[in-house]
Design a protein around this nucleic acid. Sequence first.
DNA 1: CCGGATCCGGCTTGATACTG
DNA 2: CAGTATCAAGCCGGATCCGG
Lengths: 127, 127
Amino acid sequence: MVTTQSDPMLRGDPYAADCPTRRILDRIGDRWTVLIVGVLGEGDARFSELRRRVCGVSQKMLTQTLRGLERDGLVRRTVHPEVPVRVEYALTEAGRTLLGPLRALQEWSIEHLSDVSAAQKAYDGAE
Amino acid sequence: MVTTQSDPMLRGDPYAADCPTRRILDRIGDRWTVLIVGVLGEGDARFSELRRRVCGVSQKMLTQTLRGLERDGLVRRTVHPEVPVRVEYALTEAGRTLLGPLRALQEWSIEHLSDVSAAQKAYDGAE
DNA sequence: CCGGATCCGGCTTGATACTG
DNA sequence: CAGTATCAAGCCGGATCCGG
């Protein structure tokens, strides 16, 4: 199955099922991770704050995604045992390193959105 | 629902549901798009070639993802009406511009995989 | 045969309600 | 406020079938 010859792990071929890129992609490719990390990149936030800012996320997916990020060591969760419980989420050192690549993607999106929209319109029109 | 005040569209807040970044993220966040674009970045490929290289993708998702990319103007589909039909997929100009940001993400993955794995192990152990 | 569409079962997601 | 529990709906993957 896996061609271990010449070590594809460290090359530009993230296509074997066990390639590192694949593993990360499965994380960030869930459509909420990127957004949540993006929000946290602008500053720590508590649960409901995230819920409000990441428009459209369900509390279940928010919880689930945050747990995943915590597990990956990208987000730190801090519980303040006050009267109304306060839980703060923050990017870890490692989590902050993700911001760079994410920004690149974001800038690409902004830059190419009109082209993509036009292409979609053309495609749908022609069909 | 949508706060139209002060135009968040062009800022660094991809968190409104109608923000451009969101739209693109929904595309690339499907877990196959990135891999397929990555493969095509190394050269044109036909359907079964992609199927082989993007290990684990089902024929259905491959078709679906390629259609989406074609619709977005990122991939060009060429049918050669030969005896066994040959269909070639290639990145468009716009599609190639995605390679940069994708590489950044890929490099991040490779660089941080061990940290993430360690964090996961620690998290699971502590629980 | 290659590329692709369709049908179906299982897992993931989302909406809603409930708890500490 | 910050989640967990529950259940319905939609998406994914696999098998199967079709057109050139």
